[in-house]
């Protein structure tokens, strides 16, 4: 398609009309401010904002999500005078619930620490399972305000568990 049969002959009319061709010579669309669709621009702006928030969260939270119990005052960022996330396995027989407070000890690599948490931990919380506790260390105990239960990369059928239970192997079998 060519545009040689266009514009019209009368120049004064041509001045009043937007006679810019809307297609290139090969028929493809030309970019035009008149056709600007604002929705993708709005979405892009939101994506940039969301991306900024996510990267900030990544740098402040996601990098090294937790410290292990044996790293308190050893590893950088794991000082006992600041708010930390501490990972350890709930010791067998250590869970005591009274007056809405759940107390237990967590251990990792030979080091242990008592934990006090106001409330009932959610998820699949139980003995012999690794947890990440958020909180502050006060008077030799971690005053937790959030308990997250870690899941390992192992998936075992509930039927197999009965066999293990029968053998009563304790924490070693479950962990």
């Amino acid at each position: 398609m060519s545009d040689t049969d266009f514009p019209p002959s009368d120049d004064s009319i041509a001045n009043d009309l937007d006679l810019a061709p809307r297609t290139n010579i090969d028929g493809t669309a030309m970019s035009s401010r008149q056709k600007r669709n604002w929705l993708p621009i709005l979405v892009l702006a939101m994506v940039v904002v969301a991306g900024g928030v996510i990267v900030t969260q990544f740098l402040t939270s996601a990098v090294d999500y937790y410290c292990n119990v044996d790293e308190i005052n050893v590893r950088d960022g794991c000082d006992d005078n600041r708010r930390i996330r501490l990972q350890g396995t709930v010791d067998e027989g250590s869970v005591v619930r009274s007056d809405g407070v759940t107390a237990f000890t967590i251990s990792f690599n030979g080091a242990s620490l008592p934990v006090r948490y106001s409330g009932e931990p959610g998820g699949i919380f139980k003995e012999c399972i690794p947890v990440v506790v958020h909180g502050v260390i006060e008077e030799g105990a971690l005053q937790g305000d959030r308990v997250e239960v870690k899941h390992s990369d192992e998936y075992v059928s509930v039927n197999d568990e009965r066999v293990v239970d029968a053998q009563d192997l304790g924490c070693d079998a479950a962990a």
């Binding site: 996510i54 990544f58 939270s61 996601a62 998820g123 239960v149």
Partner: peptide, 18 residues
């Protein structure tokens, strides 16, 4: 159901969101 929280800004979740 498992961890006890819907969302946490840990490495996997944060990179997936990105």
């Amino acid at each position: 159901l498992t961890w006890g929280v819907f969302w946490q800004w840990d490495a996997r979740l944060t990179t997936t969101a990105l």
